[in-house]
Design a protein around this nucleic acid. Structure first.
Length: 422
RNA sequence: GGAGAAAUGGCAGAGUGGUCGAUUGCACUUGUCUUGAAAACAAGCGUCUGUAACAGGACCGGGGGUUCGAAUCCCUCUUUCUCCGCCA
């Protein structure tokens, strides 16, 4: 959520900036500015009424104390009028606040100036890329390999739950565990604190990171208790500090968590979703940081480098994209995507997204710290995947396949307990 | 699941209808003293909103109600604790 003060003071900047996200904010901004003005005016009027009531009430108290009952009764009568006016103004104010808020949450975060314009993912800017590796003609896609080596049973998952819920088994299950353990160790060594958060969150948390109200349909909803299954660890982890004022010396706060992620992905079918490409339940290790506002872009660079090194350690061919305005998510100011190359499918697969949300999330969640003068100010939040497992697994299987085995990258061997799957 | 108790500022802990936004202690900040530190003493010390700045307004777990006036009374929800039951 953008700060009302910013919209009020820099109306044109907001509108122009959002053009990069192909978002015409003119009408919403106009409506916000006028609602805000009305709201403040109404509040001033109401405050005036309340002030008089408070004053009169104190006087009544004093009169009663002095035993001047008659005079007190007269005062009471006066307050009645003030009260009905105030009640009306209060109702108006509440309505205006709701309308203002409803408009405010419609505005996406402003893109960073370096975000290139563009309509779709076609126009994302490739800022770094490895050579595309080629495999022999007989190379198999991962869904054939998982079957060949008995690593994942997709049909069994369909039987137990439904499509998009794979069952990892044997070495497939162990490799999954190895990847999670390695990713977490890699992150904690870099100073991230490891968390194991709940996998279901309440409405307030889902709202805090922006999944609600607009992305309701993408989450599984446990209606009996009104809980949502998390689509990413970002939701519970970012909410850890919801509403807090963080002591400046505690910043930056670096957190990492492994969780399964649940996504309904309504309406996705076809070859794009085959095998591990898109699932309803998948595993991911996430990194989240809360930082002082003026350091967030340095931290973003640091996080990008952190994820890059991790992918390098896995010896997978990758590229880094700077997302164009049309592809940057609602809440993000800037996003770098990491993609690894699936040699058998001959396509790039997204495995990580590293974003700076600046104060967009923290304004909504009221996560603050204190500046040098002791005044509260919003912190910046950033997050990134390190990493999403299924597509890493897919590439790892495909790119490392030989005639009769799959080689395990060095860094994973001690976690996996073998040098190859065969 | 049943019975009972509780929820107040960073923490502890007063406050049961009228200058209570809230006594006090600890913690914290600044100053005095000291070569420096500690101790002692003095002052300050919640959040949000609002204003050019004052003023003003809201907030004592959340929501609602009674009243001229509520931290204090009533209703409701949530959470925590104790006891019982069940249980990985």
């Amino acid at each position: 959520m953008l700060q009302i003060q910013k919209i009020r003071e820099e109306k044109e900047t907001v509108i122009n900036s959002l053009k990069t996200k192909n978002f015409d904010a003119t009408a919403i901004v106009e409506s916000i500015v006028s609602l805000d003005e009305k709201k403040r005016k109404t509040q001033a009027q109401n405050d005036e009424q309340l002030s008089r009531i408070n004053k009169a009430s104190k006087e009544i108290g004093m009169l009663m104390g002095q035993g001047k009952k008659e005079e007190a009764e007269v005062k009471k009568g006066e307050v009645g009028q003030l009260k009905s006016t105030s009640k009306e103004l209060g109702a108006q104010l509440q309505q205006l606040e709701k309308e203002l808020h409803d408009e405010l949450v419609k505005l996406p975060n402003l893109p960073h100036p370096s975000v290139p314009p563009g309509k779709s993912e076609e126009e994302n800017e490739v800022i770094k890329t490895d050579e595309i590796p080629t495999l022999s003609e007989s190379a198999l896609p991962h869904w054939a390999l998982t079957e060949k080596y008995n690593l994942i049973d997709f049909e069994l998952g369909t039987k137990i739950t439904g499509s998009g819920f794979p069952v990892y088994r044997g070495k497939g299950a162990k490799l999954q565990r190895a990847l999670i353990a390695y990713f977490l160790d890699y992150n904690t060594e870099a100073g991230y604190e490891e968390f194991m958060p709940p996998h279901l969150v309440n409405e307030e948390s889902a709202y805090g990171t922006g999944q609600l109200p607009d992305k309701e349909g993408q989450m599984y909803h446990a209606t009996a208790d009104n809980f949502y299954l998390i689509p990413t660890a970002e939701v519970p982890v970012t909410n850890i500090y919801r509403g807090d004022i963080i002591a400046p010396e505690k910043l930056p706060i670096k957190m990492t968590a492994y969780t399964p992620c649940f996504r309904r992905e309504a309406g996705s079918y076809g070859k794009d979703v085959r095998g591990l490409n898109r699932l309803h339940q998948f595993d991911k290790v996430e990194i989240v940081q809360m930082v002082k506002a003026d350091t967030s872009y340095d931290v973003l660079d640091e996080m990008v480098a952190h994820v890059e090194k991790l992918i390098q350690n896995l010896e997978l061919p990758y590229r880094i994209l700077r997302l164009c305005g049309g592809d940057v998510s609602f809440a993000s100011a800037i996003t770098y995507d990491f993609e690894v190359y699936s040699a058998a499918q001959k396509r790039w697969l997204e495995v990580s997204s590293v974003s700076n949300f600046e104060n967009f999330q923290t304004n909504r969640m009221k996560i603050r710290t204190r500046n040098a003068e002791g005044k509260t100010e919003l912190v910046h939040s950033l997050n990134g995947s390190s990493l999403a497992l299924p597509r890493i697994l897919a590439c790892l299987l495909e790119n490392n396949q030989t005639e009769d085995s799959i080689k395990i990258p060095k860094v994973l061997q001690s976690y996996f307990g073998a040098e190859a799957i065969n």
